[in-house]
Design a protein around this nucleic acid. Structure first.
Lengths: 126, 126
DNA sequence: TTTACTGTGCTATTTGTAATATCACAGTTG
DNA sequence: CAACTGTGATATTACAAATAGCACAGTAAA
């Protein structure tokens, strides 16, 4: 539950919360059926109104990422990782950004370097 | 002058206009000292208020991308291509998107493929 | 000079929505 | 019952995008 809010961003706060929850799930920081702090705790910790946090989790629940039980709390959905929508979206964002960069004059090597730098420390398979 | 506005996007319309003008310059669609349609023509064609289009070009002019002469029109600046700010921004966007995709579970090969597909038709250097 | 364009500048208003502020209400647990 | 939980609704505030309208000044050609 380490959420950082960029108040200068054009991205709404509730969207930033959604993104970081999904990222934490995919990082393995948040696991299936794990309970999150209560809405009131999270909103207090982040210095936000409960409604702002509530909106984030209402939308996450609508996307099957979390589920909530009145009186108990909010939990990570067991098949949240299976939700490939965000991966597909992320891949598409890479493509869009790459197309833009190419148009701006970036060459193939520049872009490949960015990708390779990202996986530099990963010695898992080679 | 083929500008497409996505009204459902969170990106403001004037920002979309700016981006597409810069892209057209880097594509070579718009060339140095080329005159653009008048603000009134563009706003009419796009179905937008003149002030919205005006804002886009005021900011482009502030960045040295275009210049304007009262009574004449708006033109592409000769050294617009030299403006590397947008390339740096575009490269940074690729990196950010790639980091996200990796977190979501994308592997190196997936991302490299996206880049390579993009340059598939380019036989200029190999 | 007149006419019809061009961009510029300004003010005001409308509109949408993020974020906040309070409520009341219902489910869960001890 | 008490103290938590999430839910739902409404109202308000705040901010920025987008619109609307007007006056003004520069350019160019009739």
């Amino acid at each position: 539950m380490n959420i950082f809010i960029d108040y200068h961003s054009r991205t709404p706060i509730y969207e930033q919360i959604k993104e970081q929850i999904v990222l934490d799930i995919n990082r393995g920081v948040l696991k299936a059926d794990e309970q999150l702090p209560s809405l009131r705790q999270m909103s207090a910790q982040l210095g936000l109104n409960i409604n702002t946090v509530k909106r984030a989790f209402s939308e996450l629940e609508a996307q099957g990422i979390t589920y909530s039980v009145a009186g108990k709390g909010i939990f990570i959905n067991a098949d949240a990782q299976k939700n490939s929508m965000y991966l597909q979206q992320a891949l598409n964002d890479v493509k869009t950004a790459a197309i833009n960069a190419k148009t701006m004059g970036a060459d193939r090597e520049q872009l490949l370097t960015i990708i390779n730098e990202l996986f530099k420390g990963d010695e898992s398979n080679d």
